[in-house]
Design a protein around this nucleic acid. Structure first.
Lengths: 127, 127
DNA sequence: CAGAATCCATATAGATACTG
DNA sequence: CAGTATCTATATGGATTCTG
């Protein structure tokens, strides 16, 4: 507290925020679901697609590319005809289990509190 | 494994994904930083703004509203002139510390692996 | 099958100006 | 000071078409 007196305000920049690394990769609409889908077994492109309700081919492709680039999922092309591509979780990807579990746990534990807060807020304001 | 044989494929929908609750609220560009900034002490609007490098007034307002609505931060108007508004972390907001810590920990632990994966990927592909 | 490419609607970000 | 309102540039999302 003594350290930060005066105008020694520390500046927080998005670029330096370490949590960005993780959030940027998993916080999009589909990544968590893709990772969950691959948890038990490798799957082919269209199989993943069928399991994720509502994902478009474009969105899924982009998502898988990003996860692949970051070493979270692996991609194996099997050159048969018609072509087959198998996606799987990498060991690095599996290390996400811990953060995911904690995330999940928080959600379950505090969903009621958050919903209550939203309701209160909307009543205080809206209408 | 026996259970999911046949075409008993389970469908994962974004709407049902519980992690959405948390990710939707904290995964945006500024929420984590705002929460970090308020960790030690309540702050006024423009003070938060000064500490977050690059945030626009509009983005910060939206971010704070969302956090307030979800019960993560509190907002207290002090009717002096010129007006003063103080933002603070709520008890509910403090419960985010645990997920954040785990997130942070993962990032620190696996940043090198992710960066290596990216580099490998870019070499295999790009150019 | 697994995608790349394209086009279009819409959502979001940012800058600017204004107000109690 | 702490916003709201508005406008615009840009990014993103989704549907459609095409291909090795």
């Amino acid at each position: 507290m003594a350290d930060l007196s005066e105008n020694r305000r520390k500046v927080l920049s998005v670029a330096d925020c370490p949590s960005r690394l993780l959030l940027d990769q998993i916080a999009d609409k589909w990544s968590v679901l893709v990772i969950a889908a691959l948890h038990d077994e490798p799957l082919r492109f269209n199989e993943i697609r069928r399991r994720l309700e509502g994902v478009t081919q474009k969105a899924l492709t982009q998502c898988l590319r990003k996860l692949e680039r970051n070493g979270i999922v692996g991609r194996k092309v099997i050159p048969v005809s018609p072509i087959s591509v198998e996606y799987s979780i990498t060991p690095l990807g599996r290390t996400l289990q811990e953060p995911f579990k904690v995330l999940y746990r928080w959600t379950v534990d505090y969903l009621p509190a958050v919903e209550q807060a939203r309701q209160d807020f909307d009543e205080r304001n809206g209408a």
